[in-house]
Design a protein around this nucleic acid. Structure first.
Lengths: 331, 331
DNA sequence: TATACAATTTAAACCGGTTTCATTACAATT
DNA sequence: AATTGTAATGAAACCGGTTTAAATTGTATA
């Protein structure tokens, strides 16, 4: 590969002048032509490493996540990468394993200009705050680690409220919840949305109606079984993930029940499994990819100096009505 | 951030000596101690850009794919990243948009040391061969672009053979196929596996039994409908993706059929939707994540000079028997 | 004690860019 | 014609590492 020195020699100018041409700084038109000719002839491509070293920015940002695939992190990666690509940045993805260690490394090595961190719960909030203290550009997705770190979240309260309200409007009064671990912030927010919806429609809150799952299918199946064993079982179930909703339906099908006739079921996420299941699952759509888009834009804004104060954006959910609650039959 | 010069000054040695300590080259034990002390005190972290420039390798490899999420590319990313992380490499992921352009750029800029390219069909095989001609390290996943480029593939023939054989052994003789576009190499390989299985069990091949889909759910639903309209419809369907298999089942359910009682259905991929569907889908498992693992290992081998001649590994599929073919009832 | 040799260490060059500062060339002003 | 100002260019320093070649140190040998 040719270097800037070879281009300079071939064009008969100094490397400073070649650099000027490359960066669109004023040069005479004849010089410009000479240099461009040499660049073409040598098929010259500037060395990103040398440029990064000199400019002290890599034009790469890092994304740290507990997982790089799946219905949640996959779309986030897509969203982030799309924005970065359009702005001539690259994306390094890294699965967090050894806790905080690798986090800081990439930044301090200057391998990346900034870090987008998803579900910081799994990483350790202190580690993130430490980065922020060292003044590294950090954006957090789906988790608020305090006012000083920019974040992108979804409105869990709103999503749960919508789902519950939908079931209430379909006439259900005994609505169960299959929740996620109570220690997770989003569990609390969603539970609050559920309770407030009940309250708004003057329905009593019954704590036996709330069960705890772990987001995965088997827990949905298991908790549905427990709900059916109740003296007075629910007529509708709101699960905090599509997979748990589907698990609940597995349980129902195995016992010969029909959905939505015998039980209305609603999920959360609107992942690929929701639309492909039969009956197609009514669910709360999280704008997951958009979280990635917003986070990436925010990161670029921070790097360009546009965003100096941390900001926190909360994206809205939307209800996707399909067949698992019988809403289509109700008209 | 501290630099090597500051460390050298604090330790009272030259930067060359600090460099030696960093790279585990022989130094006296007192020098070692002095340098390490300075490194700790300054919280020194070597600058990756400077090192890359000097060593002419970035310790980053690029992954180019038409998609960065979903049931196929998600696991590949996981597999690749896992291997790279264990070898202290980073992974840049990039969705291919503007065809060949960006491909070469990252390599020529020296932003990455090598490129792993998935489903090269969408990228243009000539572009890949051009990279190889320029002697850039390239590994291709799920697509063979010729003997000169290392590749990792799965045994499509074998997978289709297994699936078809399974249905035959369950007593089916009219087995339909919902294929993918015939121009795709894997379509041809799978079709051959299907036909050879029929042949081996002395079953006739009937071309009306093979329909063309596009890997997505709606096409499965659509083609199933056509199959049902046949004068003598199949009793079993083998779809070339889980999503198409599920689409076929949607069609059957809507018409009041039962699966597997009225129709056995088998998919391909073993994606998340296969296990979460009801009835759980029997399918051909592709070792997708393993493809990423193997590709990454191969890339590292190329970069370290271990692998000089291109190699081609073909991973085996396996049949995952669940409920959609009724095999569990047959015992 | 002088000499040879190996083991450490350092100074300087290099990787390939960007940028500061000085210089040159040239047109405009008085 | 002398002076001033401006635009274009080049030389050299710099970014922060690695590496080569030369210098230094200490030890063993003659």
């Amino acid at each position: 590969m040719a270097t800037i020195n070879e281009v300079a020699k071939l064009a008969g100018v100094s490397k400073a002048t070649v650099s000027r041409v490359l960066n669109n700084r004023p040069v005479s038109s004849e010089t410009y032509a000479k240099v461009m000719k040499a660049i073409r002839e040598l098929k010259y491509q500037p060395n990103a490493q040398a440029r990064s070293l000199s400019l002290r920015r890599a034009k790469v940002i890092g994304l740290i996540a507990p997982d790089l695939q799946g219905v949640f992190h996959g779309p986030i990666i897509m969203g982030v990468e799309q924005v970065l690509q359009n702005n001539d940045f690259n994306l390094i993805v890294s699965r967090v394993q050894s806790k905080e260690y690798r986090l800081a490394k990439m930044l301090k090595e200057k391998k990346v200009d900034g870090l987008i961190i998803t579900t910081p719960r799994q990483i350790g909030e202190k580690a993130i705050l430490a980065l922020k203290r060292d003044n590294f550009p950090v954006v957090v997705i789906d988790g608020n680690v305090g006012k000083q770190v920019s974040s992108v979240e979804i409105d869990n309260y709103q999503g749960a409220f919508q789902a519950t309200e939908h079931l209430i409007k379909l006439g259900h009064t005994r609505i169960a919840v299959i929740s996620s671990p109570p220690s997770f912030r989003e569990s609390q927010e969603r539970l609050l949305g559920y309770q407030d919806a009940l309250k708004q429609y003057n329905l009593p809150f019954d704590s036996t109606m709330v069960r705890e799952g772990d987001y995965l299918l088997p827990s949905g199946e298991r908790e549905m079984e427990k709900l059916l064993a109740l003296p007075s079982p629910p007529t509708a179930v709101f699960a905090f993930s599509d997979l748990m909703a589907i698990g609940a339906i597995h349980c129902l099908f195995k016992k010969g029940f029909s959905v939505p006739k015998d039980m209305a079921v609603i999920g959360f996420d609107d992942s690929i499994v929701a639309q492909s299941f039969y009956p197609p699952l009514t669910t709360v759509r999280q704008p997951i990819m958009e979280m990635g888009v917003v986070a990436a834009r925010k990161m670029l804004a921070i790097l360009s100096g546009e965003e100096v104060e941390p900001t926190h954006v909360i994206l809205q959910t939307s209800l996707v009505v399909r067949a698992s609650c019988g809403a289509d039959l109700h008209q």
